[in-house]
Amino acid sequence: MNPVNYLYLAALLFTIGAVGVLIRRNAIVVFMCVELMLNACNLAFVTFSRMHGNLDGQIIAFFTMVVAAAEVVVGLAIIVSVFRARHSASVDDASLMKL
């Protein structure tokens, strides 16, 4: 098997995550889909690391994880406070920008 299949898998997972972001209304699930996309990227980075024979790809993936962790913390905090204010976790309810 050619390791490039990992890249195809990463692309597939990324696309599934993106579609999930678009079709789900629950902010938490949308957030999970974003995490899925990040993980797909990490897989691609790790595969690239193997392809190039150095560890820089893994370093980037490591940083991605750290940033993703920070993002999850802040994002979930936002979801919670929005839920407390509006009693809804639907992203469609936050459409106040529309006239």
């Binding site: 972001v21 936050a94 106040l96």
Partner: peptide, 14 residues
């Protein structure tokens, strides 16, 4: 097109 739904804008972006 400007329906205020963030998901619609996300589709455009995608």
């Amino acid at each position: 097109l400007q329906n205020g739904y963030v998901r619609s804008y996300a589709v455009s972006m995608f």
